[in-house]
Structures are given as C-alpha cells and as structure tokens.
Design a protein around this nucleic acid. Structure first.
Lengths: 347, 347
DNA sequence: CTGAAAGCGCTTACAG
DNA sequence: CTGAAAGCGCTTACAG
C-alpha cells in the first residue's frame, strides 16, 4: 500500500500532527524537524491521499464564489452547467459554491460582488472578468493578499492572477481559418463578425484570425471586420447593413455565437445568395442552422468543461493551499459538423 | 449540510451499521426496519458521500483486471494511457489495477487471462474482447454469476455484459462521410480501407459509412472496400496493389489508424496523383502526414478517455455494488485538422 | 514547538 | 437480526 503520514511519523519519531504541519508548511514546527520529515517523505515518495484530505477538510466548509455576467448570454449559460456539475461534486468534499451574477460590462456591479465575496469569508473567487482598470486594480490587490482568483473564459491584460481557464484563442482562431479555407476552396471574400473587442478573448481571436489568414491562406481576403453589439436587435441591424452594402462578401466567420441577432441576419442573407458560414460555439440557433444545412462547421470551446475545470482547480488550490505550476489551463477546441450533433447527444 | 447515515440512524432509532446494511441491500436486517430506513432516506433526499465511501472501502483492496491485446497496436497503446491515469487515481481509493496483455486475436490467451483474473480474486474485468464464440460463452457465464465485465472499445455480439465503453461507430462513420463530402466537393471515387472485419467495431463503422454515403452523398461512389491485415508489410502490399490497379480512385477513407503499413502506401500514392485522404485516429504517422498537408482531416475517438472512463465506471460498480442504468457509454468523437494539433498539445 | 484525541462519513468484522 | 467499535488517511482545536 501507499505511504501514509502515520508511517512517516513513526520513522521521524513524531506525531502525525507534526508531520502534517511540516509537510503542508503550516508553521509551528521546529525547522530542523520539518526538514527531517520532508526528507523522509521524499525518500518514501510520499503522496498525500486526496480522498482522505477531502473528507477531513469537510469540517471547514470552504466557500467559493463564481462571479459572472449573464444578460441573455447563451455562452455563459453553458459555462454555468459545468459550474453546477462541479459544485455538486465539490459539495461532498465540504465546499460550498455560490454563483453571483451581474450584468454585462457593469463594472460597479462586478466590483461590488468581489467585495461581497471577500467580506463574507469566501475562500476563493472564480471570475469572468470585465476588462477594466478598476477591476484590474482590485484583482491585483487580492493577488498581493494571496487571495486566490481564477479567471474564467477571459483575462484582464496586465492583471496578476492565479490561473486562467478557457479557450486557447490563438489556436481556435487558426482552426477556423483552416476550416474556412477547406470549404471555400481557398478563395473567398470574408467578413469577420465578432463581439465586444474590449474583451481580451475577442481581441485575441480576431488577431489570430487576421494574422493566420494572411500568412497561410492569402486567397481569402478579409473584407470587413464587424464588432457586433451584445444586443440582439442592434446586432441584427449591424450585420444586415454590412451584408446588404457588400454583396461581394461570400463567406462569414461568425465569432459571436452567444449573440443571436447578428446570426439571424447572416442566415437570412444566406437564403438569398451563396455564402459559406463558419461559426463559433454551439447554441440552439446554431444547432438548428446546422441541421438545416446553412452552417457547415462550428467551432466550440466546451464552455461547460471550462466552468467545471475552473471550479475543480479552485478546490485544489484551497485544499493544497498552493497554486499548481501552470497558469494557463486550456480547454480543448472542438470542430463540429452536422453529423457531430447526434454523436454529442449520444454521450 | 447534507444528510448523513447518522441522521437517518437517529430518526429510525437504529445504528448506523443497520442503516448501511439496509440502504445497500446487504441483507441481515429486518425487512420492515429496512423499509422504514429506506423511506426516511428517501424523504430526506439522502445521497451517500462518495468520498467517505471511497475512503472507507480502502481496507478491502479491490482488484480490477484490464485485459487487452497489444501487438504493435498504436490505438491500444493510447487506451492504456487512460487506463494508467485512472489506475493512479483509483489507487487512492484502495483499488489495485492490473493490466494483462495478450496477442491480437489469440483466443486461448484471452480465455486464460479471464480465468486467471477470476481465480486470483479480481473483483471485475475490463476487456477488449475478441469476437469469438468461446469467449462469448465464458463472458456469459460470468454475467450469470454476477461478475462485472465491461467491454472496452468493442463488443461481442449477442454476449451479455455490464457495459460498453467506446466510440459510437455509427455517428463517427457518418461524420467521416460528411467530412469527405466537404473536401471532395461532393463527388469522388472512394476506397474504404479498414481493419479486421471480424471485430464488431470495424463492421459497425463500415456499415455506417456505406449506408450513410449512399443515402446522403450519392455523388461519392464507394469503389472498393479493402480489409487490411493487422500486419504492417502485408497491409502495405494490399493497399499498394489496390491503388495501383485502380488509378480512378481519388479519395480514401482510411479507417485503420492503428495500422501504419497501409497508410504508408496511401501516402506514397498521394505523392503521385491527387488523392483526398481522411483518416481515423491520431497516431504519430498521421500527425506527421497532417503537418505535411497530406491528410486534411482525421477523426479521433479519444482512446485514452475510453480507457479512463471504463476503469472509473468499473470502480463505481464495485463501490456501489450495482450497475448504473446505461449500458452504452459513448466517448466523444472528435474532428481534427492540421491546426488542431497544436491546440491539443497546449492542453 | 509538540502530541493526543476527535472528527470528516461510511463500512465491516465481531460479539451478542 | 442488531449495535458498538474500529478503521480508511488526513486535519485541527486544544492542552501542554
């Protein structure tokens, strides 16, 4: 059987409590003794039993806050599914998870929720951050206080944080270029439609697309980049206007899966003239359009897995009281085609 | 906090031991008392704490056998990675996992390993089964004895088993058709190359491809179906011969990712004439050919996740002493393009 | 700075 | 058929 702290305690001639304190750097132990204990643990190749750890930690009732924006955002809704699944599992290990919602881009509301979480004794925050200086400042403060914050889905540039869990925007952008290249035969007039470019995630993706398309697929010309409103009607009008004014555009990379309005306009235009469409994400609207054959490929970033992973990671931090090595935790980008839908439903 | 057996015991006026016996149908408890306990548990919406369960079960040292064939099969090697990861995690919960390897299609060897696992007191078997009557008979016996067997990757038709963990061959076949349709523009002369058709998995996939292609993409004609040897040189010669004899074939669905020989012949021919290639699985050879642009898409079935899931499922059976509802546990089929490679490496 | 003891929730010999 | 008790491995008040 595996090595236990009891064995280490016997070998070191101390109690298990002391071993625990030494191995977990809890202080209140003679440095020399700690040294000896650590050495023995290393020699024996000791690995703590995570299950026992969880069970034991139950008494302390650690609380985790998940702060996110949710105004009709279908993407975030799916993130929440994963959050809830993880919350359920973590419950057995003694964690309490509270989801705190605020409106999109409402900086004051997000700041308030952060302060609330801290003052109410939450042990860590999982955050879909608004890219804003005030929030950045607050997050940096927390970092200095050693308060764990995990950025989910997006980050604030220049901010200090424990981890990022989300999509690798660089590669998902490249994948979308390659797919578009395939279905257009390497030559097309392209419009890229994307959400709020204030968000790091959207800017990353756009940058990646522009750069990679130019370099690898020069036959595909980016004729227009449209920053869509987060609002359905507004984005519908924006997209409609562009496509009406530019009849030469014959392919679209729709990067704002969460916003239905613009997509509606795109699908309408596709009825009138041949347009190749590649989207991101997998919403109800996209699913339907794929079934009907209007969207050929969509690229998803597993939002529910992102929510799940972020919470699991936070629980690890809190249990081990230290951050893992990696700061960036990427979630797999997936390519879906009409036929993938049933496959994903059969899981 | 959540409901515990202690609370139930108090309400029912019995000891926790009795509650445990009643709730887990271990017998040795008055039926009426058991009834009452179950009723209380239901009313309180009791859910056992899986973590505590694991920890407690540690003393019993349950053993799980994983029996599979491994003669140079790159697919199975990846399955093993997942098996090992799960084995590592299960170790903390008191399970011991032993991997028993036998040669491809060696029925006697597989039977022997099954008997060995049973006689040596293993609690369950995860099996990549050979599609054979004698093995089927043995597996059915085990089923009658309530000995848990999980089929991994493939099944034996007509056999009785607890669960299947693997790919949904029907949908992965359909996905490959749709991809081929996209990259050929809907018209092609196709050769399908596939491994041993004695295996249920391969037969399923082929059936799905033939049926779906005919129905949805009539412009793509299946000109040849080649059953490849499992052996590199032999399969190389087979594929070479077909492609030399049939210069009209301009697209290939290569379904035997695990066998490199045939693929080598395919890639050689692709140097000489334009051939569109879609493969299954993601081996070193396929990775390289994708980088070089010779293979456009490959379809993977997450072999390591299959190994992982099968073992996790078995541990659940053994802990809960009952099988879950679902018999078929499908693992996600993924579409990969050249640009997906880096993304998957960044995980 | 250190140890003995209780506890997390569940399971199981053992004694009755 | 039933209960009291010990145990899985780790953590933490508490007392010293």
């Amino acid at each position: 059987m595996a090595v236990t702290i009891k064995q280490i305690a016997e070998l070191a001639g101390v109690s298990t409590g002391t071993v625990d304190r030494a191995l977990n750097n809890r202080g209140r132990v003679n440095p020399q003794v700690a040294e000896r204990i650590k050495k023995i643990a290393k020699e024996l190749n000791y690995h703590p039993n995570a299950i026992a750890k969880s069970l034991s930690i139950k008494r302390h009732k650690l609380k985790i806050a998940v702060i996110l924006n949710v105004s009709k955002n279908r993407f975030v809704e799916t993130v929440l599914t994963g959050v809830e699944l993880a919350a359920h599992e973590l419950h057995a290990a003694g964690f309490t998870v509270e989801v705190m919602k605020c409106k999109d881009f409402d900086v004051d509301a997000q700041l308030e929720l952060i302060d609330k979480a801290v003052s109410e004794g939450f042990a860590g925050i999982v955050l879909i951050p608004i890219n804003n200086e005030r929030i950045k400042a607050r997050v940096n403060e927390l970092y200095e206080e050693d308060f764990p914050v995990i950025f989910l889905t997006s980050i604030i540039e220049g901010a200090k944080f424990w981890s990022y869990v989300g999509c690798n925007y660089k590669y998902s952008g490249q994948i979308s270029c390659a797919i578009l290249n395939q279905i257009t035969g390497g030559s097309a007039r392209l419009a890229v439609m994307i959400s709020n470019l204030q968000m790091w995630s959207n800017r990353q993706r756009l940058l990646s697309i522009e750069k990679y398309m130019n370099k690898e697929f020069p036959g595909i010309k980016i004729e227009a980049v449209l920053e869509l409103s987060n609002e359905d009607i507004e984005s519908y009008l924006q997209a409609k206007k562009l496509l009406d004014e530019r009849p030469d555009i014959n392919s679209i990379l729709y990067c704002s899966g969460a916003v239905d309005g613009g997509l509606k306009a795109v699908l309408e235009v596709a009825q009138q003239r041949p347009v190749k469409i590649v989207t991101f994400d997998f919403t109800e609207t996209i699913r339907k359009a794929m079934y009907d054959g209007h969207i050929i490929f969509t690229i998803t970033q597993n939002p529910n897995e992102q929510g799940y992973k972020a919470l699991k990671l936070m629980s690890q931090y809190l249990m081990d009281r230290q951050r893992p090595d990696a700061q960036f935790h990427y979630i797999n980008t997936e390519i879906m085609i009409r036929e993938s839908i049933k496959d994903s439903e059969s899981l």
